[in-house]
Nucleic acid binder design. Sequence first.
DNA 1: CAATCTTTGTGCACGCGTTCACAAAGACAT
DNA 2: ATGTCTTTGTGAACGCGTGCACAAAGATTG
Lengths: 254, 254
Amino acid sequence: MATGRTHRPATRSRGIPEATVARLPLYLRALTALSERSVPTVSSEELAAAAGVNSAKLRKDFSYLGSYGTRGVGYDVEYLVYQISRELGLTQDWPVVIVGIGNLGAALANYGGFASRGFRVAALIDADPAMAGRPVAGIPVQHTDELEAIIRDNGVSIGVIATPAGAAQQVCDRLVAAGVTSILNFAPTVLSVPDGVDVRKVDLSIELQILAFHEQRKAGEEAAAGTAAVPAATREQSATDQGPDGDVPAVMPA
Amino acid sequence: MATGRTHRPATRSRGIPEATVARLPLYLRALTALSERSVPTVSSEELAAAAGVNSAKLRKDFSYLGSYGTRGVGYDVEYLVYQISRELGLTQDWPVVIVGIGNLGAALANYGGFASRGFRVAALIDADPAMAGRPVAGIPVQHTDELEAIIRDNGVSIGVIATPAGAAQQVCDRLVAAGVTSILNFAPTVLSVPDGVDVRKVDLSIELQILAFHEQRKAGEEAAAGTAAVPAATREQSATDQGPDGDVPAVMPA
DNA sequence: CAATCTTTGTGCACGCGTTCACAAAGACAT
DNA sequence: ATGTCTTTGTGAACGCGTGCACAAAGATTG
């Protein structure tokens, strides 16, 4: 039936706004790059430019974490890296299982971004018996039958679903029943989960459709405005972000 | 929010809210499933449940497209599929190029969701000469040198970047210079583009970090509340958006 | 120590998006 | 026709997120 979810403030006293949480990884990435270049401090203006956001927004975001900056100077890079990492929970180990080792699952398993930040691929799981034992990204694929045992034995709380749409809900149910409370879903399906379980979805098809919409709109405008349209070529750091509203997710290569 | 485009209301006269546009593909998917089951009509309540959203929100979303429903009955499935497809620009052909044919690029090339909705993989491009000519998903990979010619000859306006982070901006620049105006970026980098070019990003690392944040928060709550926590188990359609309950702080002091 | 300069932290206003709640519209039965 | 019942379409209120603009804080210089 309806979403019986008890409506709650969502932004609690000590709670950090969801929009801010979604940007923290972005800041962390920029800060890590600065750290590797041994840059000691950075101003909100500089960091904001690197992350592709407004500096005022960045300062407000950081203000939710506490006052870690020094007026007249900026933020200490190393300290900020630590604070954000801690806030995001990246200072601890997060074993992750990937279910569905097809093209996408294999790509995810090979993704270097996993180990880099506390995430560890604890196991690769596939329903195809023929896959069992075959190593992917150096990790032997295990059969779905082992799912519950794997989750339990490794204390896995985060699961990645990369199966066909038809199998996603079933896999999801088993993951949740086994103790997983956070799911990253790559299957083009709406997953139904109990309260307390977080689901984020990454859907290539949806992304493309959104782009097509804007593309069509641009074409229409251009036609309507005659030839005198779209001249703009001023290279800018406008980084047309459309990710802020906690919208879409992603994937990515090393 | 959408394109960081300064001029232009963003919500034009005929403009559909960005949040609504992002949900249209979701509705379309649910409607397509109903269509395949030959369901003639559907109520906002039913469709909303299938798409995992609030029914009032769905009705408001549709109201931006026009009045396609019949009070007392619901919406005509076939008609709605057509209207949404048209609105999203899926009734026309969208040639797409994928740049960077590594694990992820290959997975994307093999992804069936492409052809299904007007998207057609026009070409696969990689910088590695060794890849040139090798077929992936039945399409021979072409070298980066051909990029401009491919874009021009095929009238490509949508590009997918699946290269390593270091090459992304350069590839992006070439795509834009060649005429691409919509980019789906899988590389973990902030892309800088001129006005008029839309960029959407998909970042696995960010998604996992957001999940880790909530996971950590949940663990903290559980610990703080002792054993009397997280009892809820009512199976519900509370899908996607994470940000549900946000109880106890769970944030340690600095 | 005082003056000046830089940059943070935030109060405030604005706009988008969500949700409720209900009147209007149409189907359907009598 | 008239009445009842179902479901849409939307007015209005509310909350979140964004960005401006500025006072406060601290560094730096003389």
